[in-house]
Each structure stands twice: as C-alpha cells, then as structure tokens.
C-alpha cells in the first residue's frame, strides 16, 4: 500500500491509499477537486496535472517526452509538474505529497 496526499487549489488535504492503478484514478475515486481525467488516462487532456513536492520528485521520476510536450503548453507547469495518469502507483510512492495544479 502507498499513502498519497493531495492538496487542492483551495487548500483541502486528502490522503488516499492504493497499491495499483495510477494517480489520476486514485484522485478521481477520492473526488479530489481539480483532477478531471477527461481522457481516461491516455495522456491526451492534461486535466490531471499535479506538482510533486520537490523532496518527493525523485521517487516519482521525470515525465516522458510525450508527457513533457503536453506540460510544456500548460500555463501552470513548473519543474515539478507531472500528469497523474502517467504515474503508476507502487509501494515506492508511499508518503508523497502532490499539489493539484488547477
């Protein structure tokens, strides 16, 4: 199990647990505001954009080139940006904090 904490734009903190699936799915199951996942997780809509807490970024890892191309054109992107649908959940992610970008 990995415990993941989301912080929304309005400051609400939601901690959820999962052992599989991806971050977008986990956020949607827990009604995290600002994560829509319109395309169902195929890296087409960028509605699952999160900023990984800098101290946890190494655990999550960098975006792929295709994902980076999507983030490049997102006005709220920064160096810690990732798309939730492209982050697979594993034990290694236990304890990470994600700020919802939108």
């Amino acid at each position: 199990m990995a415990k993941i904490t989301f912080i929304t734009q309005t400051g609400t903190q939601i901690t959820a647990e999962a052992s599989s699936g991806n971050i977008m799915e986990l956020a949607k199951e827990n009604n995290v505001e600002g994560i829509d996942g319109d395309c169902g997780g195929v890296c087409s809509c960028a509605t699952c954009h999160v900023h990984v807490a800098p101290e946890h970024f190494d655990k999550v890892g960098k975006a792929s080139e295709i994902e980076e191309d999507m983030l490049e054109l997102d006005d709220n992107a920064n160096e810690y940006s990732r798309l939730g649908c492209q982050i697979e959940i594993s034990e290694d992610l236990n304890g990470i904090v994600l700020q919802v970008a939108n």
Binding site: V42, C43, S44, I66
Partner: peptide
C-alpha cells in the same frame, strides 16, 4: 488498447471541445 494517446481529436488548449464529455 493504445496506452499513451496524446490525440487532439477534441481540439487542444482553451478551446477544447465543450461537448467532449457527452460524446465520450
């Protein structure tokens, strides 16, 4: 089952398709 599919069939950016949720 294409897993990474950054298509623009519903457009892209500000003007992406308003009716996309209905269509999907």
């Amino acid at each position: 089952d294409r897993k990474v599919n950054p298509h623009v069939a519903f457009g892209f950016s500000h003007h992406n398709c308003l009716g996309a949720t209905h269509a999907r």
